[in-house]
């Protein structure tokens, strides 16, 4: 990142994908934006452009955002061909105008994937991620049934690694950056977080099988081991977890094919 503290003013041209709705035709539209402070965040720049559009009686650019501090995972656009734009390990909301040059044309597009259908302008529907989690991204524990927290020691190295994986914010940048629109990094992160912890062992096999099958059914692509996902990830989640997911999936497939099942299984629900 550029190390500068003085506020400079820049002017840019914003080339934004505008699309009124899921089935409407879309196109790039240019908007000039002048006299922007370099301390301004990228989304604040969009706010300013939108205020201008509103006052001109035009519809502002719809874009997803919420916490504006890089943790909620709502913001999602591709800036100059990169998911979340020019930073490393940050979300769109953490991009500042100091990352751009005066006079630059900035191309802004929605995350594109069949599994993330477009809603409007830069907003896409990422509920596919929720469906993947619903397929098994949890530990089945009823409220109130938990043993004392310290009765389950977890080696610090495992807990730290689980935390690395758990840092995923569910933004979908991995899908957006992957040339195959694959959700492997997202799935891998959740499978690894729970698979690394002793609490996650009872459902480890069923979880990985169910989550991968759901991922496939939702129309995400597959992994070709290029690691664009982890390079674009705002939490720099490592593709090591994808290796782990592959291993877990293979092991679970083999185990579930040969492991005997109790004849009484599945009775009580």
């Amino acid at each position: 990142m550029v190390a500068e503290t003085n506020s400079n003013m820049i002017s840019i041209t914003l080339r934004v994908w505008r699309q009124a709705g899921p089935d409407a035709p879309g196109k790039f539209v240019d908007y000039p934006a002048a006299n922007l402070s370099t301390h301004m965040s990228f989304l604040e720049m969009l706010d300013v452009v939108n205020d201008g559009l509103t006052l001109k009686g035009e519809e502002p650019i719809a874009f997803a955002h919420d916490c504006r501090e890089g943790i909620c995972g709502t913001c999602s656009c591709t800036i100059n061909g990169k998911a979340h734009g020019p930073g490393h390990g940050v979300a769109t909301c953490q991009i500042y105008m100091r990352a751009f040059r005066d006079g630059e044309v900035i191309v802004v597009e929605p995350f594109r994937a069949r599994a993330f259908p477009l809603v409007k302008d830069l907003v896409v529907d990422r509920s596919a991620f929720d469906q993947i989690i619903q397929a098994g991204g949890f530990i089945s524990v009823r409220t109130g049934a938990a043993p004392d927290a310290n009765s389950i020691p977890v080696p610090k190295t495992d807990a730290d690694l689980a935390m690395d994986a758990a840092a995923c914010i569910g933004c979908g940048a991995c899908v957006a950056a992957c040339k195959n629109a694959s959700a492997m990094l997202f799935v891998a992160a959740k499978v690894s977080q729970l698979g690394l912890l002793p609490q996650g062992q009872p459902e480890r096999d069923s979880r990985v099988l169910a989550m991968v099958n759901t991922m496939d059914a939702l129309g995400f692509g597959s992994c070709t081991n290029q690691y664009e996902c982890s390079a674009a990830c705002p939490k720099t989640i490592s593709h090591d977890f994808i290796a782990r997911l592959n291993r877990d999936y293979l092991a679970a497939s083999v185990r579930s094919a040969f492991k005997p099942v109790s004849s009484a299984a599945g009775g009580s629900g």
Binding site: A149, N150, P153, Q199
Partner: peptide, 20 residues
């Protein structure tokens, strides 16, 4: 109870070297 519940859910709280 909250801490117990969250740990059981797989919340990766910070731990000491002994695993606690």
């Amino acid at each position: 109870n909250i801490i117990d519940q969250c740990v059981a859910q797989g919340v990766p709280f910070a731990r000491e070297y002994g695993g606690l």
